[in-house]
């Protein structure tokens, strides 16, 4: 089944119905495995048991960026290839991405509290994630502001792509601004020199959360397709009522015209 075949929403729905249970099962298994391994992981010599927050913070932070990437690819699909499923994918991903970004912020702040003594520090990473969160919210506001889904899709696609180009620039500027205002006394989250006893549970958790996103995303895309069907059927209903009342049969005696229209 190729990408072209998936352009047919009915085929996509069929595929989703077949794949979703397996994806959900895989997510649950991996999540359980990851949580088990995370509970067995030793304490960090510096951070103590708070290092356990890393096992959920890092996957959420990773997803906050991955989801924007997925939306950017979908936006290219909307603008360049005009793939019919692309705007459905972009729209369904936005609230999920915003939730993961919110969780990354929340867990980061809870992780920082024992380290910094405050819940919020204008730390470079937290600040860029906060800006990313604001952009997700703006994007969702844009989706909600416009009635016509395809019109909203094209506007959102332009904004998503501009955001994708701008996010690295924003990240770089915030890093620069941060080093200007506070010398590197802030704790480094994560870091590349992770011990194996941390790395393996972290990778399992990251995979599990990625699968979780895929599951939620597919399900939300299915809902979005159904929502559009409802919308088009309601439009048909409205136009039929308007037509039947115009034709003089009256909207109350609509059953005859409905039968004609339904054939």
């Amino acid at each position: 089944m190729s990408l072209i075949d998936l352009a047919n929403p009915s085929r996509f729905l069929a595929l989703t119905a077949r794949v979703l249970p397996w994806l959900a099962a895989a997510t649950v298994i991996l999540l359980a495995l990851g949580l088990y391994q995370a509970s067995l992981a030793p304490d960090d010599y510096q951070q103590g048991a708070t290092v356990k927050i890393m096992f959920i913070h890092v996957p959420n932070a990773w997803l906050s960026m991955l989801v924007w990437g997925v939306m950017s690819v979908a936006s290219l699909g909307t603008l360049v290839w005009r793939h019919p499923l692309a705007d459905v994918a972009a729209k369904a991903a936005a609230p999920i991405g915003a939730s993961f970004t919110f969780l990354a912020l929340l867990t980061g702040s809870l992780w920082g509290r024992p380290m910094w003594g405050t819940y919020w520090e204008w730390d470079a990473r937290l600040t860029s994630v906060l800006i990313l969160f604001l952009m997700y919210l703006g994007l969702m506001a844009l989706w909600r502001a416009v009635e016509d889904p395809s019109r909203a899709a094209r506007a959102a696609a332009v904004l998503t792509l501009v955001g994708a180009i701008n996010l690295p620039i924003i990240k770089f500027s915030v890093d620069w601004w941060n080093t200007l205002h506070q010398p590197a006394s802030v704790m480094r989250m994560g870091g590349s020199t992770l011990d194996k006893s941390f790395l393996i549970p972290l990778l399992v958790m990251a995979t599990a959360f990625t699968l979780l996103f895929l599951t939620l995303h597919l399900a939300a895309m299915r809902n979005e397709i159904l929502r559009r069907r409802v919308r088009s059927l309601q439009m048909m209903q409205a136009s039929r009522i308007a037509f039947s009342s115009e034709a003089g049969t009256g909207s109350r005696d609509g059953s005859a015209s409905r039968e004609i229209g339904a054939t």
Binding site: D43, G48, A49, T50, K52, I53, I56, H57, N60, S99, F102, L103, L106, T107, L110, W111, R113, P114
Partner: peptide, 19 residues
Amino acid sequence: SLGPYASFILTSYLAVAAV
């Protein structure tokens, strides 16, 4: 054992679970 900051760890896991 979760050490002195158990409440922070539990809160973050619960928050993720809730969302």
